[in-house]
Amino acid sequence: METGTADERAMLPSPFTYNDAQRRGMSDRRLYALRDSGAIESIGWGLFRWAEDGELTDPDLLEISVRAPEATLCLTTALARHGLTDQIPAAIDIALPRGRRRPQVRVPVSWHLFAPGSFSIGQERLALYQTHGIGIYNAERCLIDAFRLRRWEGPELGNEALRRWLRRPGTQPSSLLRMAREFPRTEKSLRHALEVLL
């Protein structure tokens, strides 16, 4: 298997785009020779990584994070990562601030546009690969969003996730309600669901 030279690896750290390679002077012929030999592998449209960099556990999320740096896992996808639902969504639920462009990616994505003013509330970082990561909402924000968007997501998603969350040791409904104050139209329904379940 052909490998990239030390200079090539230094100028193009993983992952890199086709445009990155072009800007740094790599010819199409060299790029595709590296791909065809297995030295680099495609992880999305025009997106590559060096094969010898080790195992890549989630190329789909890496592609999304490179194409949309503000992308944040939300709703069913994030609830599943937090162990609060058994549902497996047909597409990855990704939030972007309203007004941002939704990029083209290879994997099925359900894009959700959230208000810029509240976009970062409850946002954490999920490590993916080397220095790359993707945003993910914490469990409390996911619960709030499931109630906030129940008209589209269905009421059972939020109710079941809330039941599971309450069974976990150390959960504090007061912290959930504190965060819910940032979403006034949701706070009342969430407070009512807590009163029923507690």
Results as ranks from 00 to 15, higher is better:
residue 106 R to S: 15
residue 165 W to Y: 15
residue 181 R to N: 13
residue 40 I to E: 01
residue 121 I to K: 11
residue 26 M to S: 02
residue 173 P to Y: 07
residue 73 L to E: 02
residue 167 R to P: 00
residue 76 T to C: 02
residue 45 W to D: 11
residue 105 V to K: 04
residue 139 A to V: 04
residue 2 E to W: 07
residue 170 G to C: 09
residue 10 A to Y: 06
residue 127 A to L: 09
residue 166 L to G: 06
residue 118 S to W: 02
residue 196 V to I: 14
residue 142 C to G: 06
residue 188 K to N: 10
residue 7 D to A: 14
residue 66 V to T: 07
residue 63 E to L: 02
residue 192 H to L: 13
residue 111 W to H: 07
residue 77 T to D: 03
residue 188 K to A: 15
residue 103 P to F: 08
residue 155 P to C: 00
residue 122 G to T: 07
residue 160 E to T: 15
residue 69 P to L: 07
residue 73 L to M: 12
residue 101 R to K: 14
residue 42 S to E: 15
residue 32 Y to Q: 11
residue 3 T to W: 05
residue 20 D to M: 06
residue 22 Q to C: 00
residue 109 V to S: 04
residue 98 R to M: 10
residue 2 E to D: 09
residue 126 L to A: 01
residue 16 F to I: 03
residue 87 Q to Y: 10
residue 127 A to H: 11
residue 79 L to C: 08
residue 49 R to H: 07
residue 40 I to M: 10
residue 32 Y to T: 07
residue 167 R to W: 05
residue 11 M to E: 04
residue 36 D to S: 14
residue 170 G to V: 10
residue 47 L to T: 03
residue 182 E to V: 00
residue 31 L to T: 03
residue 11 M to A: 12
residue 22 Q to F: 08
residue 108 P to F: 07
residue 116 P to L: 09
residue 168 R to E: 14
residue 35 R to Y: 11
residue 62 L to R: 04
residue 139 A to T: 05
residue 74 C to R: 01
residue 131 T to E: 14
residue 140 E to G: 05
residue 149 L to H: 14
residue 82 H to W: 15
residue 171 T to F: 04
residue 98 R to G: 03
residue 50 W to K: 07
residue 143 L to I: 15
residue 168 R to P: 01
residue 171 T to K: 13
residue 41 E to W: 00
residue 170 G to F: 09
residue 39 A to L: 04
residue 9 R to S: 01
residue 27 S to H: 02
residue 152 W to S: 13
residue 28 D to C: 00
residue 120 S to R: 14
residue 115 A to D: 15
residue 167 R to K: 15
residue 98 R to Y: 12
residue 197 L to R: 14
residue 172 Q to R: 15
residue 185 R to L: 14
residue 49 R to T: 04
residue 124 E to M: 11
residue 176 L to Y: 08
residue 169 P to Y: 01
residue 44 G to M: 04
residue 115 A to V: 07
residue 171 T to V: 15
residue 57 T to N: 12
residue 119 F to V: 06
residue 44 G to T: 07
residue 34 L to M: 08
residue 5 T to R: 06
residue 121 I to T: 11
residue 124 E to D: 12
residue 99 G to V: 08
residue 81 R to L: 11
residue 79 L to N: 06
residue 40 I to V: 15
residue 69 P to R: 10
residue 29 R to G: 02
residue 71 A to N: 08
residue 158 G to C: 09
residue 48 F to E: 00
residue 188 K to Y: 11
residue 40 I to K: 02
residue 109 V to F: 06
residue 28 D to Q: 13
residue 5 T to P: 04
residue 88 I to L: 15
residue 184 P to T: 11
residue 35 R to M: 10
residue 114 F to Q: 10
residue 101 R to E: 10
residue 121 I to Y: 13
residue 8 E to D: 12
residue 70 E to Q: 14
residue 188 K to G: 13
residue 107 V to N: 01
residue 178 R to I: 02
residue 141 R to Q: 11
residue 106 R to A: 12
